[in-house]
Amino acid sequence: MKKATFPDILSTAILLYCFWLLITGQLVSLCKGDPNVQVLIYGVVISLGVAVFSSRFFIHESPFYLYNPVKWVMMLVYVVCVFCIELIKANLDVAFRALNPALPVHPGIVKVPVDLKSEYGQSMLANSITLTPGTITMDIAEENGQTYYYIHWINVTTQDHKAAGDAIKGRLEKGVGRIWK
């Protein structure tokens, strides 16, 4: 386990403080112009205190990588344009499979190569795949420098690693690749 440096703690604390503002409802009060100063100061103390203990679990790479408005736009584009469309398509597909009297399922576990290098990018892609109905990421393994996901797939159309990967994560991986390396 690496030691927490000051930039790690600061970047974690800023993120925690943003959530503090959202959850205590102070963000709305700030916009209206009558914030509760006591609550704001408690937030600074608590988020710094929590960050000192938790930043070494939270920050594994460059701490201020995501404090970049270009990345936020990329993430919004990914969530709204790429991920939502895939999510709705997959939801309709699985819903009609479940309601179909013939129950057309061909389940199987396929191994899929992934080209993302960043740990955050890999976990974001794995989470996106799991959130899409019809596919669940079961494990991540590394072989000869290439990362592989094991994915339970409800409708196996091909057992070839590459072709299965294109069918499952084709557009998702490109979208995540624009945010993380």
């Binding site: 999510l87 939801n91 699985v94 819903a95 499979r97 479940a98 309601l99 129950l103 399922v105 389940p107 799991t130 959130l131 899409t132 109905p133 019809g134 596919t135 669940i136 339970h152 409800i154």
Partner: peptide, 20 residues
């Protein structure tokens, strides 16, 4: 789907439908 699917993993796939 959760009631009709043949095995545990396929049932989980259907439950993702509710969850999303």
């Amino acid at each position: 789907g959760m009631l009709r699917m043949p095995d545990a993993f396929c049932r989980m796939q259907s439950s993702t439908n509710i969850a999303t």
